[in-house]
């Protein structure tokens, strides 16, 4: 029984973003890359499933520049995944082409029982790959999942929607699950896990062998800009009463937002 987890590498959340000289992309020098936080929940959920179904094989899949992405895959292997697929591709591939590549890579392997992804990647926040992967594979899909029960032929899950409301959803057949925070508590890679990970199989796949090229992207990002400098803060003086009074006045008369 094959379980797949699709993971992405993103700049650490502490990263201060700078732009490259021609503003065509961010300046990646010195950036620390980490596994997308939501993907950690995805990996953990797959490993939890493997604990209760020891015959399951957990394959982690990632697409991106080979050298970097290898690290994220090794981290997932150290957490306990069995093997890895690495699709070597430029990081500028869009969600559509990424999902298409992941779908084809998975099609070339044993049919999936479950596929886990993060609900979104915190770099471009597109939240598209998970849904599109499911469509390309013809599987059912739910994203923003914070609770999951896997049955024999179906999964039952909870998904967060607007205003803190939740939907209880059942998916029949193999499914793609987009993990949200709250689904579980991701484990850390143990030292023996890290040692073992070095020997676990990692298969490299060329993008072209999946029938995908950069021109399959439907969009790309250009002309990056940093947020405009904010004028310095206006500190309101006086005691609490006076501060509150001037704030209410400024919000109404100067900022005109209430």
């Amino acid at each position: 029984m094959r379980v797949y987890v699709c993971i992405k590498q993103v700049p650490d959340t502490e990263t201060k973003i700078k732009l490259n000289a021609d503003k065509s992309y961010i300046d990646t020098t010195g950036i620390k890359w980490v596994m997308n936080p939501y993907d950690e929940y995805a990996v953990e959920e797959a490993l939890k499933y493997k604990q209760s179904h020891p015959s399951a094989n957990v394959t982690v899949v990632s697409l991106g520049p080979k050298k970097r992405v290898t690290e994220a895959l090794r981290t997932a292997l150290a957490m306990g995944a069995d093997d890895a697929l690495l699709i070597d591709a430029p990081e500028t591939l869009d969600s559509f082409a990424t999902a298409k590549s992941l779908a084809q890579a998975i099609k070339n392997e044993e049919a999936p029982h479950l596929i886990f992804t993060g609900k979104l990647a915190i770099d471009d926040n597109a939240s598209s790959v998970s849904q599109q992967l499911a469509e390309f594979l013809g599987l059912q899909h739910t994203t923003v999942v914070s609770k999951l029960e896997v049955g024999t032929n179906e999964v039952t899950l909870e998904r967060e929607i607007e205003g803190g409301s939740r939907e209880v959803v059942q998916l029949l057949g193999p499914a793609v699950i987009g993990a949200n925070k709250g689904l579980n508590q991701p484990r850390y890679a143990s030292l023996p896990g890290i040692m073992k990970a070095k020997k676990k199989p990692l298969k490299e796949i060329e993008l072209s062998s999946l029938g995908v090229t950069e021109s399959d992207s439907k969009l790309n990002y250009t002309n990056f800009a940093l947020p405009p400098e904010k004028p310095p803060v206006k500190i309101l003086e006086g005691d609490a009463g006076a501060q509150a009074e001037s704030l209410a006045k400024l919000l109404r008369e100067e900022a005109k937002v209430i």
Partner: peptide, 13 residues
């Protein structure tokens, strides 16, 4: 992009 640390123009095919 990066949850608001910068912005980018979207160029469509």
């Amino acid at each position: 992009m990066y949850a608001g640390k910068c912005t980018a123009q979207v160029d469509f095919k």
